[in-house]
Nucleic acid binder design. Sequence first.
DNA 1: ATATTTTAATTTGCATGCAAAATATTTGCA
DNA 2: TGCAAATATTTTGCATGCAAATTAAAATAT
Lengths: 146, 146
Amino acid sequence: MPFEQLQLKNQLCHRLYMASNSIARAYREPLTAINLTYPQYVVMMALWEKDKITIAELIDKTAIDGGALTQILKKMTDKNLLEVIKDKHDKRKRLIKLTENGQALKLKAIDIPSKIRCKFNSIDAEQAQQLMSILDLVVKDLNKPE
Amino acid sequence: MPFEQLQLKNQLCHRLYMASNSIARAYREPLTAINLTYPQYVVMMALWEKDKITIAELIDKTAIDGGALTQILKKMTDKNLLEVIKDKHDKRKRLIKLTENGQALKLKAIDIPSKIRCKFNSIDAEQAQQLMSILDLVVKDLNKPE
DNA sequence: ATATTTTAATTTGCATGCAAAATATTTGCA
DNA sequence: TGCAAATATTTTGCATGCAAATTAAAATAT
């Protein structure tokens, strides 16, 4: 009987894997239209909320890996979306600042969430909220230090 | 008001992104112990359930990208976990077959699910089931052809 | 004041995820 | 029968995610 625990269809991790990949794939088309990858979009959302933050703050907000983030920020700098500026008071730190171009992109991204939401025909607002809540618990449980 | 839809904390996609990455990270330690990556573990689970299946069936079961799967199977062949055999009746197809070594690995993997489950202190069985159900709807909605 | 430790980022190496192009076969149809 | 269309996989190129090592600068301790 315990062997059934290894069945793929019973694995929460595999459901999450499929769901996460599926939704990232769903974003691909609208994001390609504005020349962003998904992680780049996450960075933009973080900065549209609060600009001029350090890399550490950006990592905290986006949960993107620091090593990957350095590369992502380079590409976004090349695309003239943002600037990476050395902090005058603490030279270890970098401040990320949107360019005008980067700020303006928000207008083009504004309707992406609703486009994605259109694809969820089987899920009502309550279920979506439930999902958010439980995922929040999952993330917290898994990231507890011990 | 609509601008708030772009807030990161309200994005289902970002919750899924974090949850999926967190859980994959949680598997890393026990899987490293038996020399598997997460996608490789998924392939093994699929094969422990049903051996001698084609690549297409494996893609269907695991939802792993075909291009990536080719590379993954190569590495798993090198590790003597499985064999890739040409189908005699249809030379386009390949059959994946576990080696004895690959079959035996199941015993070492058998307690991984419970180890992971231990980390979920805030989630009861009912919530886990709810999560599975809603994620299932998410995946189905997002993968509907149209 | 100087060595040690800590903190903030970057770099490196490996393993995917994914779209698009390329290969190899098999099917289906004129 | 012969060839175009459909299938099954592989290959290629790009963008992460992640752990570990490295670099640079600030904070602390003695």
